[in-house]
Every structure is written in C-alpha cells, then in structure tokens.
Design a protein around this nucleic acid. Structure first.
Length: 315
RNA sequence: CGCGGGGUAGAGCAAUGGUAGCUUGUCGGGCUCAUAACCCGAAGGUUGUAGGUUCGAGUCCUACCCCCGCAA
C-alpha cells in the first residue's frame, strides 16, 4: 500500500519503524512543527521527524494541516493515511483524500477513554487491563469503527512509561496486521457502542500535584499514571519533590509507637528503605523520589544524606 | 545569551579562607538462635577541568565541561 504517515512523538516510532521494514511504501511523513528549545536553547525535532530523515523520507510540517496540507497530500496519490499520535484534527476533506481513508492507532480499549490521555486514564481509574485500538478515523474524535485490538494487563507497579512502551509496540503490530487485512479485504469493522464511550482530557502539570488527604491507593495510581511526565509531586520548603516509586503499606505493619492520628496528612517518617507518608486512609511507602535539581534518589540515599527529616509535612 | 539548583571516598550529604568530615556501603574481627541489630578495626580523596587572587582555596574571581528542576 502507498501510505502517508502522520505522527509526532516517541509513541509513533515503533509503528513507523515496522512500516519501514514492511512491503508497504511510505510516500511522506507528516509531523508537528519543530520545538524551539531544550535547556540549551537548541531546536529539537519531533522524534518521528528524526527517524524519517534518517531513512530519507519526505517530511512535511504544518501549523494547520487541514488548511495547508490538502493540496500537497492529494498529489501523493496515496492509498491510505495512518495517524499515530499526530496531534492535529483532520478535516473531512483530508479523510476523504485516500481510497481507504485514514486509520488511527489509539491507546485504549475503545470506546473507553477517547481523547488525549487514554493511557493515564486507565491507570488513574485502577483498571486491570488496557490496550490499543486500530480504528477508522472519522470526524468525531476517536469514534470510528474498530478494526483491531490488542490488550495488556496492568498491575499496581505499572507506570505510564510501561504502558506507553508496551502499547506503542502492540500498536505497531496491530497496525501492520490491519493494513494487511485491509489490503486483502478480510478486515472486520466493529462499530463502537456509543453508550459506553468515555472521554479524557489532556494531562497538564497540575495533574501531578499530590493531595495527601486522598486514599493511599489513589495516590499510588496517580504516581504511576504521571510517571515520567509530569511526575506526581509534592512540596518541601517550597521546592518540588517528585515521587517516582511507591507502594501502599498496611498501617498494621507500620512498626512505630506513633499514633498516626496526631499527624497531618503528608507527614513523613524516614526509614532506611522507605519514606512512610501519612495519607487520608493510611500509609504510602515511598522508595524513590527526585528533589528539585537532583537526580532520582532511593529512600536509602535520602536517609544517608539526611535530606528529608522525619515528621516534616509535605504538600 | 529564558530562570534556577548542583559536581567533595563506591553511593548520598557536611565543611565563617586555616588539620577535608558524617551516614551508608565495602573489607577484616567480635557478639547473637536470629537481624534493615550491636561493638571494635581498616581501606577508600589531585574536592568536574584550566587558569587567577592569597602566606594559605573545597570555599573567593574568570573561562570551560557535565548532571538535574522549571519554562517551552
């Protein structure tokens, strides 16, 4: 098949990579505009652009693809367009451009979690599984027919990065399978059950702030869902502390004569292998944190350096 | 030149310009039914790099390298 590939971040790389080593032909790669700064003020290419250039592919970048891209893309005479986390909404005109329309790789089990943060939503809600759906793109966000699905399981140790890495890989596999099925006409189209549709909003920095009055289990979900970005974080002396790794601790196993009710939510007790923090309903044992300006440190390293003292309150 | 924190023993941190220490880890020894326990001892450093100021620099000045948080 003659393909136009639209994608931007790392999540799209496995898909592009697999397409490159398949029999399909990539006519062009469309990606978001370059970002202007890293810490040194250098220009940074979207990951997809870097990979595309490395393989000598034609790269197109638009502020608004629906306004600017139609003409150029039409001339490529592609069979299908593929979007993997591209980052822009496609107009109906674009969707009609190719014989097989556009298919999209979406990282949830549709119709659950349409929208911008499907992987985070699955983690925040404590689901025990999530997955990736290959779907026909229609004008309404993530509402088209489902063509293929791959699932993965979630544990209380699974982070956003884990889900991201696994689903980007599963997505690539499912994408190739779907392309083959479209090509030989065996693809099955399953309409979404609109009554079960849920939507997710884009995650921003604020979503990382920890409210210690909430139950330990929910804070743990937040920690995993925000790792690595934006990171679940709290404050100590006005400085940000990211919580990278934690576990719920049964208060009955909390070996301390302290009466927890005497302390505020967010009060921490530093032990060599755990920083125990009081939450709304118990104890969260934190094993890895990152202080502002520091590398990630284990609880033992925090303890050795005396960086956080017992009975101080975070938040 | 976007803002800011940092680089000291394997690791994490201290040290008004005046003998580079602490916790932990490692190695050796001791105690214990036992240990994330305790006691004794040892090794481990050109303080990121290059200059400068000074009787004397981890500390002050200049340039550079590297790591990280924010912002994007």
């Amino acid at each position: 098949m003659r393909i136009i590939f639209l994608g931007t971040p790392e999540f799209a790389l496995p898909s592009l990579q697999k397409l490159l080593s398949s029999h399909h032909k990539i006519l062009a790669v469309v990606t978001q505009k370059d970002k202007e700064t890293n810490r040194k003020g250098e220009i940074v290419f979207p990951p997809v652009k870097s990979l595309a250039l490395k393989h000598g592919l034609k790269v197109l970048q638009y502020d608004n693809i629906s306004n600017e891209g139609v003409c150029a893309l039409k001339q490529l005479d592609a069979d299908i367009m593929i979007t993997v986390a591209y980052g822009q909404i496609l107009s109906q005109e674009l969707l009609n451009l190719t014989k097989y329309g556009t298919i999209n790789v979406h990282s949830s089990l549709l119709p659950k979690y349409r929208g911008a943060s499907p992987m985070q939503a699955a983690l925040l809600n404590g689901d025990d599984e999530t997955g990736v759906s290959i779907m026909q793109t229609v004008l309404e966000m993530d509402a088209g027919d489902i063509l293929n699905v791959e699932k993965m399981s979630i544990s209380n140790k699974t982070t956003l990065k884990d889900v991201h890495d696994i689903l980007s890989d599963l997505g690539a596999t499912a994408l190739l399978k779907t392309l083959d099925e479209i090509e030989d006409g065996t693809v099955k189209r399953l309409a979404q059950d609109e009554t079960k549709a849920t939507h997710t909003k884009k995650i921003n920095k604020q979503d990382g702030i920890i409210n210690w009055a909430r139950p330990a289990k929910e804070i743990l979900r937040q920690i995993n869902a925000m790792n690595p970005w934006p990171g679940a974080f709290t404050f100590l002396n006005g400085k940000i502390i990211k919580i990278l790794n934690a576990d719920v601790i049964d208060p009955r196993n909390f070996k301390s004569a302290l009466d927890l009710h005497l302390y505020n939510d967010g009060t921490c007790f530093v032990f060599p292998h755990n920083i125990c923090i009081k939450t709304g309903d118990g104890i969260l044992g934190v094993s890895c944190v990152q202080l502002e300006g520091k590398k990630p440190l284990t609880a033992l390293e925090i303890f050795n350096g005396g960086l956080i003292k017992s009975e101080t309150t975070l938040g």
